[in-house]
Computed example of a mutant assay.
Amino acid sequence: MGFVRVRVGVFNPAVPDKAMEIDGIVDTGAIYTVIRRDILEGLSIKPSGRRRFKAFGGYVERDIGEAGLMIMGERRIVPVIFGETEDTMVIGITALEIFGLEVDPVRGSLKEAELLLL
Rank of each mutant, 00 (worst) to 15 (best):
V26G: 07
V60S: 02
P47T: 09
D63L: 02
Y59V: 15
I35H: 06
D38A: 11
P105Q: 13
M70V: 15
G68S: 11
T33E: 02
R52M: 14
V90I: 14
T33M: 04
L40R: 12
I93M: 08
V10I: 14
P13E: 09
F3W: 09
D38G: 05
L101Q: 10
R7Q: 14
L117P: 05
V10D: 02
T28G: 05
L115T: 11
L101E: 13
I71F: 01
E114R: 12
A67G: 11
G83F: 00
R37C: 10
I64D: 00
I45W: 01
I98S: 05
E61Q: 12
I71Y: 01
V80F: 02
Y59Q: 14
R7I: 14
V80C: 06
P16F: 03
D27T: 15
D27P: 12
S109A: 13
T88V: 11
D104S: 04
I81F: 00
E112H: 14
G58Q: 08
M72F: 09
A30Q: 11
F3S: 13
T88E: 12
L115V: 15
D104H: 04
I39T: 13
K18W: 00
P105H: 06
Y32R: 14
L110N: 07
A113N: 05
A55P: 04
L117Y: 07
F11V: 13
N12H: 08
M89E: 13
R7H: 07
E21T: 04
T94V: 09
I71K: 01
M89C: 04
E112Y: 10
K111E: 13
I91Q: 02
T85S: 09
D23T: 15
L101V: 06
P13D: 14
L69A: 11
K111V: 07
D104K: 03
G49H: 10
D38M: 05
I39R: 06
G49R: 11
E61V: 11
R76S: 05
D17S: 11
V8Q: 05
Y32K: 13
T85F: 00
